[in-house]
Each structure stands twice: as structure tokens, then as C-alpha cells.
Design a binder for these strands. Structure first.
Lengths: 219, 219
DNA sequence: ATATAGATATCGTGT
DNA sequence: ACACGATGTCTATAT
């Protein structure tokens, strides 16, 4: 890894064109060949960059970084204030512990939060166009397809709509109702869902998890 | 901006939990308070980070970065190999050119490239499920909804379809035609659009910009 | 290999 | 401040 602090100007021509006027910045050259240009703000995102695979050519006062697609990043260097190299060795990698899958699992175990007397038919109910997250039966025995999302956006409503259309062609299941369940539902998604007769339910992850821990306490 | 090369271990607890085993990495502390942890690969993306506003507390062999929401990044330092500070001064900022906003703007000014005698009703025509990029009138006075994309994919066709369905419920506008305009249109998107009676138009950004400069030359 | 979906997305813009 | 769309989105998974 090479760290350079320099007064520089940067021009990118590729999927778009972009220009950075002369100023002091950090240039970060990684072992994978990538180059990124950082200012002293904007959190972790560089002002401009070139992703690997790409190749850096150094000339007097000018770096040219190019990739196979012909995209080009040109750094014009006016003054170099720092220049150092460091060998970092291998990276063991990040271990993540997510929340995503857990949400569907929790709701499957507590379908009564969607309605009194509801029961689960099955999780990941298979159809020709993909699995329905939850297939349920409501108190009156009617079938309900549930789409679970962490954040409910319009795409999720479209997905559920396709499932409902397909499921409602099956005379053994029809009529099938739809429920769109998410931790957050965007207003546009809500409008579209309700316009299509799909019920929207906002999930409270902590509350669902709370039910779990309550049960743990009880037994 | 502070640059530290160190053998360290990182633990994040926040919207998810994540762990980085002990290894040599770059720690980047910016003037905005943000902290990011970089390995020598993965292009410009850090392995882990904390976005501003947040606060760094330094103790012997341990950095704690916290934000208001209670998310926490803990860096355990085993060995410091480099530590330097740099004053970068103000950042003039990036100038971009060739993004979707420009395309929409250019097309709005030259709707006749879509058809002779066409005129613009308005840009960003508002509806309950979002704004229609361009609402136009064709030579015979019929209403046309135009969706502009840099890259035309299936989502864009779905989006336009929803607008058309909604607009066609308005007896003052109906019947409303659809045009899907993009620099590149993927084959699947084209098939779907044409199946739904939506016309596909490939936009030439340079040509549209050329019309602009031609006008400059003429007058 | 390509298509799909999620992201600690990030980043503007408009209300 | 919040909501929403675009992104040089990026990244990983499933087909």
C-alpha cells in the first residue's frame, strides 16, 4: 500500500466525465492496483477512484490510471508532501453477523402478530417464479401470501403481486390475500400495495425478538 | 487527516455486528471525524468504518469510535508501524457531467428528437407513485409519458408501466402513450416494453449535446 | 457466465 | 429533517 499526500488535479473520463480542481489530497494506491483520491471529509468514500483491474503509469508530475474498458483517471501532481510504502500482508477478512434471515424466521414463528387465529402453512412456499416467503391461513381458513422485507420498497410489492397473480390461478388456493411485511415501508410502496388490495404491516424486530426472549424467560 | 498503519483487531456493534481478526491495516482518520479501516485490496471500500458525526476516544492500545445512535467501532492496536498527520485545506469539490439529470434536461429541451411536432408539458410531472420524467404532447395532441434512464433495464419499464396505468385512469389525459428513452436499452427490457406497447428510443448523449453546440454556432 | 437482490449502501435534491 | 431517486452504485448469491 502506498500513501501519497499531494497537491493535485484529477480528471476522469469513463462512464461519465468528472473533474477535481487543484488541491491537497490523499492518493491511496493499493496492492490490488486500485487508486483512490480522498479529501479530508465525506466519510469513507473517495472523491474519485479507479477499481482493479487497472494499471498505473507514472510520468514526471502525471499519473495515468487505465482499465481495459478504456476508462481513464489522470492525476496531475503539482507538489508531493508525503510518500510512503507499507507491506500489510494477508487480510483474514470480515466476519458478519446479519439480521436479514432472522426476520422471516421470527415472523414464521409468530404469525399471530399478523392476525389472531392465523397459522403457518409453510416458509419458502415454492412457485414457478420463485418461493413465497410465508404462506399462511387466516382465522376463516383463507390463504394469505406474505412477503417479508427489511425495507419495503416498490420492487417488493411487484414481487408479491406476481406471486398473488400466480397463486390465484390455482382453484385449490384462490382467493389468496396478500400481506407486505417490512421493518420500514416507503410511502410509494404503501400506496401501490394498498391500491392493489395488499395489506401493509410494519414489523418491529426488537418486539418480535422480545417475544422470543419472553418465551425463554417463561420456560 | 491522520494516517496510521497498525497491526490491529476491529469489532463493530451497530446495525449489525462484525469482527476483523488481528492483522496489519491502514486506519484513516479524517477531519470530519470519520474513521475507516482499509486492507491492501477491495478497491476503495474499507473493511469497516464509522461515518460522521462520531467521536474517537484514544486509550492505551484501544480506540473507541462512537456515534449518537450508540453504534460502536472498537480498534484494538497491537503494534503501530506508521502514524502521521496532514493538513489538507479546503476541497473545491467534484464537477460531474453526463449523469441522468443532464440527459433528462437535454431531452426536455429537444423533445422533437422523439417525434416531429412534439412539445413538453412538464418535467418531473408529479403523481402519487412518483414523478414522471417528462410529460409531452405529440403532433396530434396526444399525451405521452417519457421515462429517461442512463441504462434502460426492466425496472425502468415496470416504473413507466405503473405511471401509464395511473395516468390512463385520468379521463382528461387518457389515452397516454409511453416512451422508454435511454443511452443503452437491455434486450430483456426492450422486449418487455414493446410487448406492452411502449416505444423504445436509444439516446445519443453526444448528439444531444451536439444539438446544443450547433445552436451556439448558428446564432 | 449472467440475472437478481441486498446494503452499516452513499449522495444529492426537493419538500 | 425526511423522503426519494440515482449511483462510474458495489457485492454476493442463485441460476
Amino acid at each position: 500500500m502506498r500513501l501519497v499526500i499531494a497537491r493535485c488535479q484529477v480528471d476522469y473520463v469513463g462512464r461519465l466525465t468528472a473533474h477535481l480542481p487543484m488541491a491537497q489530497r490523499l492518493l491511496l494506491v493499493k496492492a490490488d492496483g486500485s487508486v483512490s483520491v480522498h479529501s479530508d471529509d465525506r466519510a469513507y468514500k473517495p472523491l474519485n477512484w479507479m477499481s482493479p483491474p487497472c494499471w498505473l503509469t507514472e510520468e514526471e508530475g502525471r499519473w495515468t490510471v487505465q482499465n481495459k474498458a478504456g476508462e481513464k483517471l489522470v492525476v496531475t501532481l503539482a507538489e508531493i508532501l508525503h510518500d510512503s510504502k507499507h507491506e500489510l500482508g494477508p487480510e483474514p477478512g470480515l466476519v458478519k453477523d446479519g439480521v436479514e434471515a432472522h426476520l422471516q424466521e421470527l415472523l414464521a414463528e409468530h404469525v399471530t402478530t399478523l392476525g389472531e387465529g392465523w397459522s403457518l402453512v409453510r416458509r419458502e412456499y415454492p412457485t414457478a417464479i420463485g418461493p413465497v416467503d410465508l404462506l399462511c391461513r387466516n382465522a376463516t381458513g383463507g390463504t394469505v401470501a406474505v412477503e417479508v422485507k427489511r425495507r419495503g420498497e416498490i420492487d417488493g410489492v411487484e414481487q408479491l403481486t406476481r406471486y398473488l397473480e400466480l397463486l390465484n390461478r390455482d382453484p385449490l388456493l384462490a382467493p389468496v390475500q396478500g400481506v407486505f411485511a417490512a421493518q420500514q415501508i416507503k410511502p410509494q410502496a404503501r400506496v401501490l400495495a394498498e391500491d392493489r388490495g395488499i395489506r401493509c404491516v410494519t414489523l418491529d424486530y426488537d418486539a418480535l425478538r422480545g417475544i422470543e426472549s419472553d418465551e425463554f424467560r417463561l420456560f
